[in-house]
Amino acid sequence: MTSRVFLISAAISEALREARFDAGSPVDAAGLRTARAAAEAGAVPAGARLRVSPTARCRQTAEALGLDGGVDAPELAGLDVGRWHGATLAEVSAKEPEAVARWLADPSSAPHDGESVRAFCDRVTEHLDSAAEFDGRTVAVVEPEIVRALTVRVLGAPDSAFWRVDVPPLTMTEFSGRSGRWNVRAGRPLG
C-alpha cells in the first residue's frame, strides 16, 4: 500500500511578508489571486482526504484553491511561539536577542513559553505516520513550518536543520510512502 501526502504551503500574507509570528492574519490580495490562478490552471491535485491547518491563512488558501470540504486538522497547527505571537522577528530579536539566538540554535529550546522545534517536529511527524495507514492521496494546506519539519524528519536530518529548509508560499511538497519509509519531492510551485 502506497500513501501519498501532498502538502501545499499557504498563500502569502502580510504577516509572512513582514516576518511576523503569525497571529491569525488573512491571505493578502496578491496571495488570493495567485491561489485562484493555480486552481484555474488545474495545478492542485485531487485527494480522497483533505486536511487544512487551523489558521485563517490556510483556510482561505484552501478555499481559493477550490479545495472545499477540508477538515480542520488541529494536529497540523503551526509552531506555537508562545508570547512572541504577533511580533516580528526583528522586534523579538531587539528585545530578547539571547532568547532568539538560543531558539534558533537549540531545537529543544522554547524561550517564548511555546513549543520547541523538536516537540513540533515530533507532533507533525506523528500525523505523517498516521497518513501511512491511508491508501491513497491526502492533500493538506499547511503553514510552511509543517513542510519544513516533515522534510527534515523524512530525510533523517537533525532537527537543527529545520531553519535551513525554505518553503515558499503556494508550493507543493509530496511525500510518498510504504511500510514506514517516506520519499519527498519538494517545492513544486502552484502559481
Rank of each mutant, 00 (worst) to 15 (best):
T61L: 08
V92P: 09
D28F: 03
E63Q: 09
R102F: 07
A30G: 13
T2L: 13
V139C: 11
F134M: 00
T61M: 05
L155D: 05
D129Y: 01
E96Y: 02
T173P: 03
G31N: 06
E40Q: 13
S176F: 00
D122K: 03
V81I: 12
I12K: 07
E40F: 11
A35Q: 12
L7E: 01
P168W: 12
N183E: 15
E145S: 11
D72S: 05
A23H: 11
P26T: 06
S25A: 14
G24C: 08
T173K: 00
T55H: 01
P144V: 12
R59Y: 11
T61W: 10
R137P: 00
L155W: 04
A41L: 13
S179T: 08
D129A: 15
D72P: 06
A119V: 08
G191A: 14
F21L: 10
R51N: 00
D129K: 09
P111I: 10
A105C: 07
A132K: 02
R185A: 14
A46Q: 15
S109K: 02
G136C: 06
D113P: 05
A186C: 09
S93W: 07
S160A: 15
V167P: 13
V52W: 05
P107Q: 08
V124Q: 01
S160L: 11
G114Q: 11
V5S: 02
R51V: 12
V71G: 01
F21H: 00
D113A: 12
P168E: 13
S109L: 09
D159C: 07
A48W: 03
R51K: 04
V142H: 04
A19D: 14
T151P: 02
L32R: 14
L32S: 06
L76Y: 08
S130E: 14
E14D: 15
D28I: 04
E18C: 07
D22Q: 14
P168F: 11
R49H: 01
R20F: 02
D166C: 07
A37D: 05
A119S: 12
G180V: 06
E133Q: 14
L65M: 07
E75C: 06
W163V: 15
P54M: 08
T2D: 02
V139L: 04
I12C: 11
R17I: 12
